[in-house]
Amino acid sequence: MKTSGDAVPSEWIVVQAVSTIGKGARAEQKGQKPLILWMTGLSGAGKSTIANRIEEKLWRCGHHTMLLDGDNLRFGLNGDLAFTDADRIENIRRTSEVARLMLEAGLIVICSLISPFRRERMLARRLVGADEFLEVFVDAPLDVCQRRDPKGLYARALAGEIPNFTGISSPYERPEAPEIHLRTDIADVDALADQVLEELRRRGATTCGA
């Protein structure tokens, strides 16, 4: 037992707040360039489907990835949040911080969220380096999303059962200059996932699919 006269080892005097292993070293160990793919779009546009396909393709090529899906995050980390504008903003803030930590671990992070507001998407971008954040606009016309309606959410929103529903009673602010624009009403999942991989190859982030 330590007594009042015991000396405190010098290495314990200062609390180490930052890891001594940097992002570059972690990325080098994994043999990849870490970045965030931020996939935004209306409910039913196809974000989760494409995000999963992108991750599958990267994983098969030996990349270390993590997929952060908005629906899954709301069961845990963001389970206390509703769908007011303030809660949506907080949802994006928390997700952005988690994505940044995973980026520091050297991962390719795929975030799939409606993220309806340009300001919050811009703030997520500013958390990391300019070349480490790619905004991916998963685009489909509202009527196509409504026809798909995989969870019956649009029908419920139109019936007044779901308030603050993006595209119906809450706005969606389309990206003005996304790095990648995917039109899910005119191309299939594999073609769109390959479009993302092509951009990653162009940026030197992968050789997958070359």
Rank of each mutant, 00 (worst) to 15 (best):
G5H: 12
D6S: 06
E11W: 07
W12S: 15
I13G: 01
I13L: 15
Q16L: 01
A17V: 02
V18W: 03
T20R: 10
T20Q: 12
I21L: 12
I21S: 04
A27T: 08
E28V: 09
Q32P: 08
K33D: 05
W38Y: 07
G41P: 09
A45E: 11
K47W: 01
N52Y: 11
R53T: 06
E56F: 08
C61M: 01
G62V: 04
H63M: 00
L68R: 00
G70E: 10
N72V: 14
A82R: 13
A82E: 14
D85A: 09
D85N: 08
R88I: 04
E90I: 06
I92P: 05
R94S: 03
E97D: 09
M102T: 06
A105T: 04
V109S: 00
L113R: 03
P116C: 05
L123K: 14
L127H: 00
V128I: 14
E132P: 02
E135A: 03
V138H: 02
V138S: 10
D139T: 02
A140V: 11
A140Q: 08
D143S: 12
D143T: 14
C145W: 07
G152N: 02
T166V: 13
P171E: 09
Y172E: 01
E176M: 10
A177K: 11
P178C: 13
P178F: 11
P178S: 08
E179S: 11
I180Q: 12
T184K: 13
D185G: 12
D190T: 08
D194K: 01
Q195K: 14
L197Q: 05
L200F: 03
A210H: 13
